[in-house]
Amino acid sequence: MDAVQAYAVSLYALSLGCAVFATCQTAAMTRLVQAPSLRLFWYLVTAVSGAVEILHAAFTVRLALLTSPPTDIAVSATIMLGAGGIFAGMARFMRASILDVQQAATLKQLAYRDPLTEIGNRRAFDTSMAEGETSGRPTTVILFDVDHFKTYNDTHGHEVGDLVLKHLARVIAGTAPGYSLYRVGGEEFAIVAPIRQDEAAMLANLCRASIELVPLLHMDQPIHITASAGVAQFRDGDTVSTVMRRADQALYAAKRAGRNRVVEAA
């Protein structure tokens, strides 16, 4: 093997290494991508890349065994190495980009999720309310508050208090699937629904009844929970502050009237 041939074989081997690296990157991307159509695309890219590598490897071996290689072999080997390096760099860049996008999405999700109950937090609620203010369609907020919540902490401890909040979130979410539920602070929860106030009041009563009928089981003992709710719909000229004020007033009215009930805002 003369010097030119050895040089060409080395470059082809390096370009093959770049192609293998790129294929590993594209294979990793199929696990990162969530959309089925994009995942299928990356499966196809990986398959084509693998097939090209097999041909590439066979040609590299054949080149090494040639007794009289072509005169332009050094030029073609240099081109192959450059192309392989570009492909590997692009694959690595795209994988890093997908990871960055997914990390940003995860951080955003965490920023809008309550860590205890794993439902939307106050920030997510404020965003939903702002959208409801400008949506131009009927939007109603339901505020739930656990009745006598301090009693659970004083009687059973704060650990059980946390279980009560988790239980309430599960019951409301299970009773009102399809509606976004938020923990807006302490023992207070909310639903922002694109429905009229009378419809939201029926939904709130259904959730209230479910909370009353489904106890929290702790140490094989049932802990009975009730909650009160206030309901208010966005009206013409309403802001988030004004509709929240009416919902709060309705919730306080439910508390004053004996708890475990739903009151609509006037």
Score class of each variant (00 low, 15 high):
99 L>P: 05
43 Y>D: 09
191 I>P: 04
162 D>C: 08
208 R>I: 00
69 P>E: 09
73 I>A: 14
37 S>P: 06
189 F>C: 06
103 Q>D: 12
19 A>S: 13
111 A>I: 11
185 G>L: 02
244 M>K: 08
18 C>W: 06
204 A>M: 08
156 H>C: 06
23 T>P: 03
142 I>R: 04
238 D>I: 10
236 D>P: 04
147 D>W: 01
154 D>E: 14
141 V>G: 05
230 G>C: 08
230 G>P: 03
164 V>L: 02
219 M>P: 02
103 Q>S: 11
26 T>W: 07
231 V>P: 00
34 Q>M: 13
206 L>Y: 00
15 S>T: 09
38 L>P: 00
104 A>D: 14
148 H>P: 04
196 R>Y: 09
218 H>M: 06
220 D>K: 09
215 P>I: 06
248 D>P: 08
245 R>P: 02
79 I>V: 15
72 D>M: 10
240 V>Q: 07
241 S>Y: 11
255 K>T: 08
12 Y>E: 01
191 I>D: 04
247 A>S: 05
253 A>T: 15
164 V>C: 06
87 F>M: 08
233 Q>D: 08
223 I>R: 04
60 T>Y: 00
99 L>D: 15
155 T>H: 07
162 D>M: 07
116 L>R: 03
92 R>P: 02
74 A>G: 14
71 T>E: 15
